[in-house]
């Protein structure tokens, strides 16, 4: 079953990624591969460099050294135009939803389309796309509300809708369930799964939420002290004898 889903086409390849902030060496040679259609969870403690790693993937942070290839393109080698074009194929769900406070939900969703119109050649009316994305997360009625009027869970769902509005090939989730109650978190995870099923996207999820990882992951990487410390399925890792690995799964 698993073999059937994960093809051999590589979506993300990270080799020997290093990044330091001042004297703080965050990533010390991180390696990772994400195959097409795969759900990969990267787990790590707070401050272990997960967020840094995922931001390197979309060029928000430049690495000190190492090679990052996303959708077959080496991030370092791209100019701004190419990078933007690549970004339109990547959905990004931010940790705190990161909805634009000054815009309505609809404007929030339309925002990514401003520059990536190429993808929607011929479509002048963005409304159906917005509606479709919002329907996917079950929030079509919130279109004209401001983010401040939404609850935390709704915000996260709107943010998810925004991440998928460009129909990306790859979605990056930065702590998709952080700050949410377990029930809402479960809803979000369900949504993530249904979206993946619907659009056949690959997903990279970083989290420290074990429940989330268990439900969604097909493969997991544990990020400890700046390197990929352990790798495997949830079942494999939970049975590991390594104390550092065990520390993740202790309740």
């Amino acid at each position: 079953m698993k073999e059937a889903m994960a093809s051999e086409e590589i979506v993300i390849k990270i080799e020997n990624l290093c990044k330091r902030f001042g004297n703080n060496e965050v990533l010390k040679g991180f390696n990772m591969v994400l195959k097409k259609g795969e759900n990969l969870v990267v787990m790590g403690k707070s401050g272990s460099g997960k967020s840094v790693m995922i931001k390197c993937l979309v060029g928000l942070i430049g690495p000190d050294s190492g090679i990052i290839e996303v959708l077959g393109k080496e991030i370092d080698q791209l100019d701004q135009m190419e990078l933007d074009e690549l970004r339109s194929d990547i959905g990004f769900l931010f940790q705190g939803s990161a909805l634009y406070d000054s815009m309505t939900v609809r404007e929030n969703l339309e925002f990514p389309m401003r520059r990536h119109r190429k993808k929607f050649e011929g479509t002048t009316d963005t409304l159906p796309l917005v509606r479709e994305a919002l329907e996917n997360v079950g929030l079509a009625h919130t279109m004209d509300l401001m983010p401040a009027e939404l609850s935390g869970g709704m915000k996260r769902r709107v943010a998810l809708a925004r991440a998928i509005i460009l129909k990306p090939k790859l979605i990056l989730y930065d702590e998709p369930t952080s700050g949410l109650d377990p029930i809402t978190a479960k809803e979000i995870i369900e949504l993530m799964r249904s979206i993946q099923k619907k659009y056949g996207t690959s997903a990279l999820i970083i989290t420290h939420d074990v429940d989330c990882a268990r439900v969604i992951s097909e493969r997991m990487i544990l990020l400890v002290e700046g390197v990929n410390y352990a790798e495997g399925t949830y079942e494999e890792l939970i049975r590991s004898q390594d104390p550092k690995v065990n520390a993740f799964f202790k309740k």
């Binding site: 339109s88 990004f92 990514p112 401003r114």
Partner: peptide, 8 residues
């Protein structure tokens, strides 16, 4: 960051 990722 979200803006930058959105290509703006």
């Amino acid at each position: 960051d979200a803006m930058e990722v959105s290509g703006t």
